[in-house]
């Protein structure tokens, strides 16, 4: 499975990652090699095998619907890059 420049740029866009123009060929090579490794999976027939999502096949545990968290907005926003009036600031989204 060989990925080309367009593939790498498309994947990087989907993942919202800026990749330097100059390093795209290296990503293409390494990602292609990784996909070759991964393609070994296709050598085995799994048509009747149930996928395993959780090693212990556990199900979601439920608890009573009580309020257990305090409001820690100010405390938690101390680590935010940009905050005003309790809101996270980001570049303008709506013109």
């Amino acid at each position: 499975m060989a990925l080309n420049r367009t593939d790498v740029e498309k994947i990087a866009h989907l993942a919202r990652l800026q990749i330097d123009e100059s390093s795209v060929p290296e990503y293409a090579t390494n990602l292609s090699n990784i996909l070759d490794l991964i393609s070994q999976m296709q050598s085995i027939d799994t048509s009747d095998v149930e996928p395993l999502a959780h090693p212990l096949d556990a199900v979601q545990r439920l608890r009573a619907d009580n309020i257990t968290e305090n409001n820690q907005r100010e405390h938690l926003q101390t680590v935010a890059p940009s905050v005003e009036s309790g809101l996270f600031l980001v570049p303008k989204v709506i013109e």
């Binding site: 993942a15 990652l17 990602l31 095998v49 395993l52």
Partner: peptide, 30 residues
Amino acid sequence: VKRRIMVGTYALSEGFYDAYYKKAQQIRRL
């Protein structure tokens, strides 16, 4: 990290789920 995010993004992108993620979870069962 970027490489692994990109491999994961590719594997989960439209049309590839059965060939990659589901297949891997089936092998996980084996």
